[in-house]
Design a binder for these strands. Sequence first.
DNA 1: TAGATTGTTAATCGATTAACAATC
DNA 2: TAGATTGTTAATCGATTAACAATC
Lengths: 210, 210
Amino acid sequence: MPKNDVSMSVVRRLPRYLRYLEELEKKGVCKISSKELAESMGLTASQVRQDFNHFGGFGLQGYGYSVSSLKDKIIGILGVNKKTKCILVGAGNLGRALLNIKFDKLGFDLIGVFDVDKEIVGKKVSSFTILDYSDIEEFCLNNNPVLAVITTPSSVVESIATKLAALGIKAFWNFSHFDLSKKFPDLNVENVHLNDSLITLSYLIKESMD
Amino acid sequence: MPKNDVSMSVVRRLPRYLRYLEELEKKGVCKISSKELAESMGLTASQVRQDFNHFGGFGLQGYGYSVSSLKDKIIGILGVNKKTKCILVGAGNLGRALLNIKFDKLGFDLIGVFDVDKEIVGKKVSSFTILDYSDIEEFCLNNNPVLAVITTPSSVVESIATKLAALGIKAFWNFSHFDLSKKFPDLNVENVHLNDSLITLSYLIKESMD
DNA sequence: TAGATTGTTAATCGATTAACAATC
DNA sequence: TAGATTGTTAATCGATTAACAATC
C-alpha cells in the first residue's frame, strides 16, 4: 500500500523504474540488486533502496529484488492497472499524435476525442471518431471522465478548463502554456511544456560549447 | 554573461521566466518586482532574486526589474537568439506534430526532416519536404546540424544516434525510451518521456482520491 | 530624505549519500 | 555458517527560504 506524501522527486523516478524493470523482465532477468539497478539507471544503490522503502520493503535481504514482484508493486503504486476514464480536447497535429499512446497500458481509458473544427468532426483518426466540442458537456455528464488531455491553443484553454472543472474533471494533462495549476490549485495538473524543454537544450548546447 | 555550473533546477526555471516576462511585456507591463513575479509564478521572491543573481545583477535596488531588459538577459542566457541548426528524424505523427513548433523562436533552425518510409519521402508537411533517411549521412556532412530531434521507434534509436554522433551531432531532443544519456554521456540529451508524464498523473490522481 | 526593493549572506529545510545492523 | 544485500538510521550535500545591509 502506498503511503502518502512521497516527494515528487521520488514519484517521478517511479515510471523510470517501471520501464527498466519491464526491460529486465523482457530479457528474462528474474532478480536484481539495488546496486545493479542503480548502475543501469544512473542512480545510487542507496537512492534505489530509499525510494522503494517509501512504499514498504520490497526486497529480500541478502538476495535483492524479484524483478516481477517489484514491477507489480510499482504498477500498483502508480495505478497503471487502473482504467481511469479520460478525454482529449484538441485534435490538431499534437492531439492526433497523442492518440497513438497506449492509454490503456498507462492506467487510462480514452473515451472521447473532441475538436471545434467542423471539418474534422465525425472523421476517424486511429480508432477514434472526432466528436463535436459543443457536445462535450452532455458527454461528460453521461460518462464522467476524470482526466482531460488539453491539446488546444493556449488562448482557449482557460474557458475549456473552467467548463470541464465544473463538469467534474479532476486532472489535466496540459500541453498548453496556460497556467492551469494557478487557476485550479485543487486539481491534478501535469504540464508538458515542449517549448521549455527545447529551450533548455538550447542553453545546454550553448554551455557545452564554451 | 552566464556563469557556469548553474544547477538544473535553476536552468529549468529560466524558460518559465521567459514566458511570464513575454506575457507581461505583451500586457504593457514595464517594471516588476521579485515579489510580484514570484507570486504570479508560484515561487518565492528570494528564489527569483537568487535565480537571477546566478547570472549577475539584473535589477535596480529600490525599483525592481525592467521587464524588457530582464527578458533580453534571459534570452541571451538561454541562447534563444541563436539559430542552431537541427534536423528531425522520424516523420510519424509525433514528428509531424513537432513541425508546428516555432524552432526559430526557440534558438534553432530546422534544416531537414527525415524518414525511412518511401511512402512519405518527398512529400511536403508544413513547409518541410520529407527527406530520405538513407541520405542523412551526406546531408550532415554538407550541413553540419548540431541537434537531432528523435521521434522514431525506440528500437531503431541506438543505430540512428550512433550514426549521428559519428557525424558530429552534439545534442538530442529524445522522444524515445532509448537511454541516450547512458550511451552518449558527452552529448547533450533532453528526454521527453510522454508516457512517464502520463503515468505520474495516474499516481497523482490515485493519491488525490484517498 | 524616506521608502522600496535589490543583492547577498546566513539559516533552514529536504533530498541524496554513506554507513551499518538486521537477516536471508 | 559465511557472504551478500536489504532496510534504516545518521551524515552530508545542495537548494530554498529568511534576513538584512546596500542603494536606488
